[in-house]
C-alpha cells in the first residue's frame, strides 16, 4: 500500500508541468502560465527547484521502500537485527549531497532576487500608483487617469507599480504577471515588469485584510500599444455628457447629483468624493465591487440596494431607492463609458 501511494504521489509531482500548460484558459489565476518577464523568471526558477526537489524525493522514496520492504525483516522472522549504528561515508554523502543541491538552487535564486528588484525604474517605464483600500483598488496614472479595480497596461513596455496602502496591509497579486508584493501603509513597494501578451488577468488581494478579504479582487487588462492608446484617450476625455434624448439617464444623473453618493465618489464635473472608487468611467468597466460581480444593470441595482449583502463590512451604506428611481440611477451609471 505504501509503495503504491508513494508511486502515485511521485507521478503527481511529475505532472505539475502538464497541469500548468493545460490550464491557463480555465484557471485564469494560474502561476504556471507566465505572461510577463517577471513571471517568466519566477516560473523558470520554480521549475528548477521543483526538479531538484523531485530528484531528492525520489531518492528518499526509493531508499524508504528498500529499507522497509527489501532490506529488513519482521519481528519473529529469522535473523537478528543488524546493529549498524553509523557509517561515516553514508553520513557525509547525505550531508554534502543536499548541500550541493542547495548550492545549485541558491545561485539562480540570488540572481533572480537582484534581477527583479531593481533600485530604479527602467528607462521609459510607465509608473503607476496602486493604492489599496479595504476592500478595493485605486489605480492612478501619471497623466491623471484614475480608475478603480481594473488596471490597464500596455504590452511590451516596462511598467513600474508603486504600491501603497490607505489603511492596513494588503498584497498585490496577479499570478500570471508575477509574484506578490505587499502594500504597507506608510511605505512604498515596487513591482517592475513587462507584460508580453495582451489579455485579461485576474488578480486578488493576498494578505488577509479583514472581513471582506475574499472580495478584494481586480482585473489587469494588458492591451496592445494601440489599444492602450485608445483606452487612454477615452479615459482622458473626461465624463461623457448625458445624451438629452435619454430621459432615464437624465433622471439618473439628477438623482446621483443630489444623493449621498457624491460624498464618497468622484464623477468628473459632478462630484468630488474620494472615499470610494472613482466612477467617471464606471460604465466602461467589466466588473463592479472590486471584481466580485459582472458589471450588468441587474448587478448594479443589487449592489446599490445592499452592498453588505455582496461584500460584508463594506463602507458603502445601502441606498434607499427602489423602482424607477433606482433603474434611472443604474442607467446613468452604466452610461458612463
Amino acid at each position: 500500500m505504501i509503495r503504491i501511494r508513494s508511486a502515485a504521489r511521485f507521478a503527481s509531482l511529475a505532472a505539475i508541468a502538464l497541469a500548468g500548460c493545460a490550464s491557463a484558459s480555465d484557471k485564469p489565476m494560474t502561476t504556471l502560465s507566465p505572461k510577463s518577464d517577471l513571471a517568466q523568471w519566477i516560473y523558470r526558477l520554480f521549475i528548477q527547484v521543483t526538479l531538484w526537489d523531485a530528484l531528492i524525493f525520489a531518492i528518499v522514496v526509493v531508499a524508504f521502500i528498500l529499507a522497509l520492504f527489501v532490506f529488513s525483516t519482521r519481528v519473529g522472522e529469522a535473523g537478528p537485527a543488524s546493529t549498524a549504528a553509523s557509517d561515516l561515508t553514508l553520513e557525509v554523502a547525505w550531508t554534502l549531497g543536499p548541500a550541493l543541491v542547495l548550492l545549485m538552487i541558491s545561485i539562480p535564486t540570488v540572481r533572480t532576487i537582484f534581477r527583479t528588484q531593481g533600485e530604479h525604474a527602467p528607462e521609459g517605464a510607465l509608473e503607476i500608483r496602486v493604492i489599496a483600500h479595504q476592500w478595493w483598488w485605486d489605480f492612478q496614472y501619471p497623466d491623471g487617469i484614475k480608475t478603480a479595480n481594473e488596471l490597464h497596461l500596455p504590452s511590451g513596455r516596462s511598467v513600474r507599480l508603486h504600491l501603497e496602502s490607505d489603511d492596513i496591509i494588503h498584497s498585490f497579486w496577479v499570478p500570471q504577471l508575477g509574484g506578490k508584493r505587499d502594500l504597507v501603509p506608510g511605505q512604498v513597494n515596487q513591482i517592475t515588469l513587462v507584460a508580453n501578451t495582451p489579455g485579461m488577468y485576474p488578480g486578488q488581494c493576498a494578505e488577509f485584510c479583514g472581513l471582506s478579504h475574499a472580495n478584494m479582487r481586480f482585473r489587469v487588462f494588458v492591451d496592445s500599444p494601440a489599444d492602450f492608446a485608445t483606452w487612454q484617450t477615452s479615459q482622458l476625455a473626461g465624463p461623457v455628457s448625458v445624451p438629452p434624448d435619454r430621459q432615464l439617464v437624465m433622471d439618473g444623473a439628477r438623482i446621483f447629483a443630489n444623493s449621498p453618493c457624491t460624498t464618497c465618489h468622484t464623477i468628473q464635473g459632478v462630484s468630488r468624493g474620494y472615499i470610494g472608487p472613482e466612477l467617471t468611467h464606471f460604465g466602461s468597466r467589466s466588473t463592479l465591487a472590486a471584481g466580485v460581480l459582472a458589471n450588468t444593470p441587474d448587478n448594479v441595482a443589487k449592489w446599490i440596494t445592499d452592498p453588505n449583502e455582496i461584500k460584508p463590512g463594506a463602507n458603502m451604506p445601502p441606498l434607499l431607492l427602489a423602482g424607477p428611481k433606482r433603474d434611472a440611477l443604474v442607467a446613468y451609471l452604466e452610461s458612463l463609458k
Partner: peptide
C-alpha cells in the same frame, strides 16, 4: 538508515 536492516 535505522530501518535498513532492522527487524521490524
Amino acid at each position: 538508515g535505522t530501518i535498513w536492516g532492522g527487524s521490524l
